[in-house]
């Protein structure tokens, strides 16, 4: 609780330092342990041999991916929780990730010879289609937060049913999709980083500028309109932004869950509800969460790789129970 007395900027700076430190330490973790000396050598340009190759081609892209994806999902979750006005909203729950997953699996089966790059594109389009569906169905009722959430859940359920149908009908063909469906940073390289980077770099700063809108929206539609905010327009804009961030992240790493749910909660514990602080802190906590999950997946049972998506759930579930107790007490 003493954390709340700290200035939000102090928290942001210390979290940033923590992320950078964590990223540095993560470089050493994996099936092949790399001593700090070799890491140092690599960065100052001394030849680090095989370790250098591993750092450059596997560790760095994965760590940077966890920064980008963690930030993307964390902010996406915070924005969604803001517009739906419910702390349980997240990209996983309102169907965005499931839509991406369904599109990816469908493409793998319909176009088996599609180049590798096709998968993330299809997934991104899938996330987009779900959003369009979301808007069409929710539009009738004035894009109420409640309708958005319910329709999203329903669309997610439809996509999930589709995924299950395809995996049963075409078990051998979907084998390739299975790793992707659990959400994993395994096998991510610089191409993936470059694919995701522009979305995050361009969209994340935009969300910071829109933070005040989220604050206004959270006061309720009536108050927000009274304050001169065009509620529906703002909500649509923010929804699109949340989908781009989550959709791009998920497209590259697969249906990695719970980061978008939990990161904003941790952030809220640290800096409260003001979005100008909440958004960056959500990005940082999302990053930390994913980095820890991926380190565990890489380093816990080498050489077996455990998908990060499983560890985000394993870490997330106890926190969720803790949150529940807290909500009950207050």
């Amino acid at each position: 609780m003493s954390l709340k007395k700290m200035h939000p900027m102090t928290i942001i700076i210390s979290l940033t330092l923590l992320v950078l430190l964590g990223a540095f330490l993560s470089i050493g973790v994996g099936a092949v342990w790399i001593p700090p000396g070799s890491i140092f050598n690599y960065f100052v340009g001394v030849d680090a041999g095989g370790s250098g190759y591993i750092i450059e081609n596997f560790r760095l892209p994965r760590i940077i991916m966890s920064l980008l994806v963690g930030a993307g999902l964390g902010i996406s979750g915070a924005v969604l929780q803001g517009i739906i006005r419910n702390p349980l909203a997240s990209p996983d729950v309102i169907g965005i990730t499931k839509g991406a997953g369904f599109a990816a699996v469908a493409v793998i089966i319909l176009f088996p010879s599609l180049p590798v790059i096709g998968l993330p594109i299809a997934a991104f389009i899938g996330a987009g289609l779900v959003t369009i569906g979301l808007y069409i169905f929710a539009f009738k009722r004035g894009v109420q937060p409640a309708t958005l959430a319910l329709v999203g859940i329903a669309l997610g359920a439809i996509c999930q049913a589709g995924i299950q149908f395809l995996t049963v009908k075409f078990p051998l063909e979907t084998n390739a999709a299975l790793v992707w469906l659990t959400g994993s940073l395994w096998g991510k390289d610089w191409t993936d980083v470059w694919m995701l980077l522009p979305w995050i770099v361009i969209v994340v700063p935009i969300t910071f500028f829109l933070a005040p809108k989220l604050d206004v929206l959270s006061l309720g539609d009536d108050v927000a309109e009274g304050l001169g905010e065009p509620v529906r327009k703002a909500r649509l804009l923010l929804l699109i932004i949340a989908v781009i961030l989550a959709g791009a992240s998920v497209a590259v790493v697969g249906t990695l869950g719970f980061v978008g749910l939990i990161a904003p909660h941790i952030a809220r514990q640290l800096v409260g509800n003001k979005h100008i602080y909440l958004l960056p802190v959500s990005a940082l906590t999302g990053t930390l969460l994913l980095m820890v999950a991926d380190n565990l997946g890489r380093g816990l049972f080498p050489p077996t790789e455990v998908p990060a998506g499983i560890f985000t759930a394993v870490i997330g579930a106890p926190y969720f129970l803790f949150l529940l107790r807290k909500m009950q007490k207050s």
Partner: peptide
């Protein structure tokens, strides 16, 4: 040397074997 599962082999271990 085991390089992990067939589903998700460890690229790091593979590269370390040169």
């Amino acid at each position: 040397t085991s390089v992990g599962t067939r589903k998700q082999p460890s690229l790091e271990v593979i590269s370390s074997l040169q």
